[in-house]
Design a protein around this nucleic acid. Structure first.
Lengths: 223, 223
DNA sequence: AAAATCCTTACACGCACTGTAAGTGGTCTT
DNA sequence: AAGACCACTTACAGTGCGTGTAAGGATTTT
């Protein structure tokens, strides 16, 4: 069953939405602590977020960006203002849909189903500049094709990608690959890093791995 | 560069759209033979199709369904009628977006970018009941997780899925797995089929393989 | 120049996938 | 009912890819 989170400050509307979605067979959670929306959503990790723009504590736009920066939960923006400016802002922030109140029940349900369908299979995918990485099998989707990474290379890329742009210490990488290994053989890590770099150069990737002497490695956009 | 196909009978509108999209950096193809829209789209296989509803020869709805049945090209419906009924019909036919004329330039461009982004990585994916199959690596996405199929099992499932519901002769399966093999060892195929069945029973799949004595195999929904 | 760190390359081990082969069970024909 | 045919299962051995080890070269730091 798909899980939908609702962030809406008008209680009447929230209740109505909740009832409607539950009748459709969704599991629904209403978030009511508007000061901790982002944290709660990231904790719940729903299949979809229904997000109102006009909130008491913080703008829905800000929340949308925060969530999109730290996860890939699809977001459907709800708003009473029918302004193109809002829609542009929302979609540029990474929102997946935009619906104006008053909404028609059928339209809303269709849009929800549409977004959920689009996200099918994208559940445990990591998004990088110009590519996607499936965390289950370490399949790399890039430029219309797909490549299967060896497990170790996949785990390394995954770990670097989760901390994109910042230096990741070698111990963390070792832990990610071998699981809190006691005897961290830094040479083994080194070899696997070389291998990953090699497979990456054979692909049209926009990122590269750089090393920070004595500390660890970093993933960043190619110059 | 992303390739967009336009199907629009009002020449003025088509030219305007084409110019606008090209200025944005898309490759654009206008389809003008309205009696062969489906065939041309399937031949071109664009990254996105802009489809008008009111066409001289055939309804855009019909075209949308035909295309969706035979490919996974994303479709963005353009219409001058702003009727909820149309929108519901369109989305139920598998259309990915729905925009009413007169459109605002920014809104249209955003929606296009949005759909293209959603389809990232879904280029060579096959869609089955409740799952997706990547044709490059034979990664199976089901129920929020992903599993990597062995190459042979993947090829068999791929071939069966392309002819879902109909019987696939054993020769065709052999060809798909070993490539027009002269000495088709039907036993080898048999063993690989058994293996595929086994991995499928270990997954929450809604389909099953049945055998047609003396002919071949068929993929169908579980009873 | 020496030391430390990073990188490359080659080699051998192991595991998963594969085809072969032999044997079982079911189904159709006569 | 019996035999022929086809579908299925299982076990085994070969192969290839991914892996860690090890040794040596390259680059930066002291």
């Amino acid at each position: 069953m798909k899980h939908i989170a609702i962030v809406e400050d008008e209680e009447m509307v929230a209740a109505e939405l909740s009832a409607m979605l539950q009748k459709e067979g969704y599991q629904v959670t209403c978030i009511e602590d508007f000061s901790r929306v982002t944290e709660e959503v990231l904790a719940i990790l729903p299949d979809l977020l229904l997000l109102d723009i006009n909130l008491p504590e913080k703008s829905g736009f800000v929340i949308c960006r925060e969530i999109k920066n730290r996860s890939s939960v699809p977001v459907l923006i709800l708003t009473s203002r029918d302004q193109l400016k809002d829609e542009i802002a929302a979609l540029e922030l990474g929102a997946d849909e935009f619906i104006t109140k008053p909404y028609r029940k059928e339209r809303l349900l269709l849009r929800i189903a549409n977004v959920l369908k689009r996200y099918e299979g994208r559940n445990n995918m990591l998004e990088g500049p110009g590519f996607l990485l499936d965390r289950g099998t370490y399949t790399l989707f890039i430029d219309g094709t797909s490549v299967l990474l060896p497990k170790n290379q996949g785990r390394i890329l995954e770990t670097l990608l989760l901390d994109f742009g910042t230096v990741v210490p070698k111990e963390k990488l070792c832990e990610a690959v071998w699981g809190t290994s006691e005897f961290i053989d830094e040479n083994a890590l080194q070899v696997n890093l070389t291998r990953l770099k090699k497979t990456m150069t054979s692909l049209p990737m926009k990122i590269a791995i750089t090393s920070e002497r004595g500390v660890g490695y970093r993933l960043e956009e190619k110059p």
